[in-house]
């Protein structure tokens, strides 16, 4: 007979079940990327996931000499997110280096799941972006299982802003972009697919909507204000929401439990910070997008936010 203190039952939710839900939520966007970018994207995904899992397993077993934590599936989530954040033409050895930085540097050095300050997948991506800019900005569109010949190649929508000017760039974004936006990181083809996954996470109560909504609102408001002031120089809200990984980042990367604030209002502030930084980088910085940098910068602020924002306590002012 078991004798232990209360509670005697459990919600039967585990780290593994939560991560499984995230994987399920990522499936629509992953499937879309496979359809449009074909075998090369499947290879990137396979290498990324396998590298992350094997690296975490090897590090826990041979370096930390602890029981393996790969069973919690978080390494798979990191692998999927990393692959989704890379161009579909990325060489596989570069993918492996990204996984190495994500798992070995960003995650395991800090002590593994729950301990890392920076989102592992984004850390991996940013490392590759600054180390291998050529590979990371090669937006050639590989052959997919369904036709994508009408896609631009050479630059992402955001990358075309300096070339075409904000007015012309804005015209390229419409309702159609919401469903299909070829040319960019593999995971951000379909805003719809990403949002379906996000809604799944909300319905399953895996995450709360506040961080994501705060990012969307901040990006939209800042873009609207600047765009109204000078439409020739600043792209509008729709353009900025639908391009450059804002949806992928806001739905799946900024909402990472480990690297986001715990309280509702903390999450709102965190989301505001991400939205603000990404818009400043886009309008005034030298990188065309900036979502990754915005999330990493705000990751650093999370301990401070958590110190300042708490739950409302019962019976206390």
């Amino acid at each position: 007979m078991i004798v232990s203190p209360n509670p005697h039952i459990h919600a039967s939710v585990s780290t593994r079940s939560l991560m499984l839900d995230v994987i399920i939520a990522l499936c629509p966007a992953v499937i879309v990327s496979f359809l449009y970018y074909g075998l090369s994207e499947i290879a990137i995904m396979a290498v990324s996931v396998a590298s992350c899992v094997v690296l975490e397993w090897a590090i826990t077993k041979y370096m930390l000499k602890r029981p393996s934590t790969t069973g919690d599936l978080s390494a798979i989530v990191t692998g999927i997110l990393l692959a989704m954040n890379l161009p579909p033409t990325c060489p596989l050895w570069v993918v492996f280096i990204g996984a190495l930085v994500a798992i070995a540097v960003a995650k395991m050095t800090f002590g593994g799941i729950g301990q890392n300050i920076f989102n592992p997948a984004i850390t991996g991506r940013v490392f590759l972006l600054v180390s291998f800019p050529t590979f990371m900005t090669d937006w050639t569109v590989p052959a997919g299982f369904i036709s994508n010949v009408d896609a631009f190649s050479g630059a992402t929508l955001l990358g075309q802003v300096p070339v075409l000017g904000a007015l012309e760039a804005d015209k390229l974004v419409g309702l159609q972009t919401f469903f299909r936006n070829i040319g960019g990181s593999a995971g951000e083809i379909s805003a719809l697919a990403l949002l379906v996954g996000w809604v799944y996470l909300l319905v399953r109560k895996v995450i709360k909507p506040w961080i994501t909504l705060s990012i969307f609102a901040t990006v939209a408001v800042i873009a609207a204000v600047f765009h109204l002031c000078d439409p020739a120089q600043f792209t509008g809200p729709l353009f900025n929401l639908l391009t450059g990984g804002v949806i992928l980042g806001a739905c799946f990367m900024a909402t990472d439990y480990v690297t986001s604030p715990m309280s509702t209002w903390g999450g709102v502030i965190y989301g505001f910070g991400i939205g603000f930084i990404v818009m400043m980088i886009r309008y005034f910085g030298s990188y065309p997008e900036g979502m990754s940098f915005a999330i990493l910068l705000m990751n650093m602020a999370v301990p401070l936010i958590d110190m300042k924002f708490h739950q409302r306590k019962y019976g206390r002012k």
């Binding site: 939560l18 799941i113 986001s260």
Partner: peptide
């Protein structure tokens, strides 16, 4: 009623 094995806090 069996408690699962304790693992790291994931700050959820």
């Amino acid at each position: 009623t069996r408690r699962g094995t304790e693992s790291m806090c994931i700050r959820c």
